[in-house]
Design a protein around this nucleic acid. Structure first.
Lengths: 188, 188
DNA sequence: ATCATGATTGACTAATCACTCTACAAAAGT
DNA sequence: ACTTTTGTAGAGTGATTAGTCAATCATGAT
């Protein structure tokens, strides 16, 4: 075993998604991670800290994946499409993480996060929205609203793809066309 | 006290949204509802049954509110808009219920529901989507996908409105224009 | 070699919680 | 009036759980 802390987080992720927060005792997490009970509390002083840490870790992972895309020379639409597709692909390739995030943000644990953690650091995308509005490419509305709508859309599509068992071809189709859908919505 | 069962559900709703499922002991629910511990278990044999019952009750309430809208003579777009606005208004007027539903459907309790409970009985809207596709008013795509997208959109807008403190005027604006947004997305 | 620091263990505990049980009260049926 | 059913209460219980602690073990620095 290389890293016990990682093993604990991995086990916790799986169990939380399967059984919910209240359905998974710390003892089970420790057992599944192959560590002793006390070891878990060595790394995370409370169960709540474990849950929040897991969220932060996943968000970090997502941010890392998103950061790869950086092609400023492309058109605004192309740039947004790149970001959109990257995020969507992440959601499809990481269903468990995706479900955990969904569960976490709908739970009261969200309030336990420091406000700056919730804040979208990745304001690159907000910037692009603003550019789009200024350049009269995107409908003039609050960028927070646009952001919320795009996020919801992303969630919806991920959910649809994860739930319905699609052939790779169909899946590819939906991924590609779904950006056009949301674009039709926000574009002038 | 008129109906203890209702009082229990009301207290449970509030506490679950505030503290989550695992953060609210049945004893506290009973206390807040002003009934004895045993009374709770007279009405709901387990905590899980209480949670699921609460979900079903809220869904029933939502359905009742939705059922009022029935104007088949209007255009397809108008009909959809009516349904959309009704749902959105419900989400805004019933934030606690709204948050509970969100929490519930992102939790493993969802799987405890009988499949027919999950199924959208209100397939009126699915019917309208099909009509729209047949009449070449709506883009040709799986109606389940359309449905998911419209629902996500609805969630997003509700969330946005609930979170940001808006003047009644602005709120009204967003409610009205947000349907046009989603319409732009699904319409040909 | 010795020491120090941190990782790891698992038995243990104090508290909590879901749920039970017995008793009683209030209707409701006969 | 009497019996049955249903509602209500709240103390009690056994199981579970988050978190502790004292004791080892591993590692590397001096």
């Amino acid at each position: 075993m290389i890293d016990k802390q990682t093993e604990i987080l991995k086990a916790a992720l799986r169990l939380f998604v399967e059984n919910g927060f209240h359905g998974t005792p710390t003892s089970l997490i420790a057992k599944e991670a192959g560590v002793a009970n006390g070891t878990l509390f060595h790394y995370f002083s409370t169960k709540e800290e474990l849950i929040v840490s897991l969220y932060v870790a996943i968000k970090k992972h997502l941010s890392a994946c998103m950061a790869i895309e950086e092609k400023s020379e492309a058109s605004l639409k192309e740039q947004l499409k790149n970001i959109y597709i990257t995020a969507l692909t992440w959601g499809i390739d990481n269903t468990t993480e995706f479900r955990f995030i969904q569960q976490f943000i709908s739970s009261p644990y969200l309030l336990k996060l420091a406000p700056e953690e919730i804040q979208q650091k990745n304001n690159k995308i907000l910037q692009l929205f603003q550019e789009g509005i200024d350049g009269q490419i995107i409908k003039n509305m609050p960028i927070d609203l646009i952001n919320t709508l795009v996020n919801s859309h992303l969630f919806g599509v991920s959910q649809y793809i994860n739930q319905s068992q699609l052939a790779a071809q169909q899946q590819e189709n939906i991924i590609n066309s779904s950006f056009e859908l949301i674009w039709d919505m926000i574009a002038l």
